[in-house]
Amino acid sequence: MGIEFNKETFRDDYTFKNSPAAVRRFPFPFPEDDYMYSVNMEPHVPGRKGSVFEHTFDVDEHYLAEMRDRELVLKSDPLRCQSLPHMTLAGWDLLELIMESKARDYPHWFELHKSGDRWTWINRPMEIEQSFTFLKDDTLPYGPLEYITRQTQGDFTLQDQRDNTLYIDAGTVTTQADWSLDFDVGMAFHEWHAPVPLAHNMGVFDRALKFLLKLQLGSPVRRFNWTMTVDPLLDTSPENYPKWGPSKTTLTMDTIGKRQHLRVELQTLHRLPRSNAIAFPIRAYLASFDDIVTMPKWGRRLHRVVRDVHPDLATYKGFIRNRDLMVQWLSQYDDGKPTSPGWWPEPE
């Protein structure tokens, strides 16, 4: 309500920007001054008004620009959206979940009208009105997963539960932190997480999997993850690594504040009703270091986290080569004062 959608790009001239309101609601991911993996899951219940978890699926000022970027990615590489044959039903489950949530949470933008299996979906920001038959694949211009994720911010994977594990058997992945859906689709939980350092030996994935296998209908959960990205590039895919990798080599003290972005993923997990699969939306939020340090608590804390994070994690997250530069720049915003617990910004 009252939001204007930004005219901005996530490539080439990089005109992406956060409004002051978007910075205030940025999901800063560090509740403490240090960081290590944990199974940091909590119920995905409606959160503070105006926050990114006020609604089941957050729609913000970047909506139209992100959808335009997804369209460009899928045009150049259709393999960024894949669904193994048995996952179509889970795709319909996800479509229903998103349509019902958005129509409920943003009635001025989205409407869903049902007459039996005959549904009409209205997406005003994207100027879409679509009538279709629920569960009839050929009544939509794309498969159900692709159709709805072309209209919803964030990446999505659909995980099939069998053999006492989860298999990543479908997804739309165009804003990823350097992992390939095309390569990983079909893998079991421990397999697609295999490249993550340290966490396996800590038992993090064993505990997370055990928790997720019991995820219940009607009780979604959420957690944060984060990484670093130079320039507001959503599509940091391994496929295109030769194109974006070199950007890491050109940061300076003068440009890092504007160009270096903290990238936060709000990950939610939902048990799906018909397929018994799990939907895993991964919603990415970008904030430049300049944005971050407008909140003094975040500036202090980010300095401490980046300075002290385990080098294997800095390597895995792809910022080890710029870590010293980051610490040097961020130290200007850390006066050594204590920070309050939790991630909410505090007025100073």
Binding site: S180, F183, D184, G186, M187, E191, A194, P195, P238, Y241
Partner: peptide, 13 residues
Amino acid sequence: HYSRRLAAFQGVN
């Protein structure tokens, strides 16, 4: 890192 679906290991630049 290995994909059963592609029957291949992964090569990265």
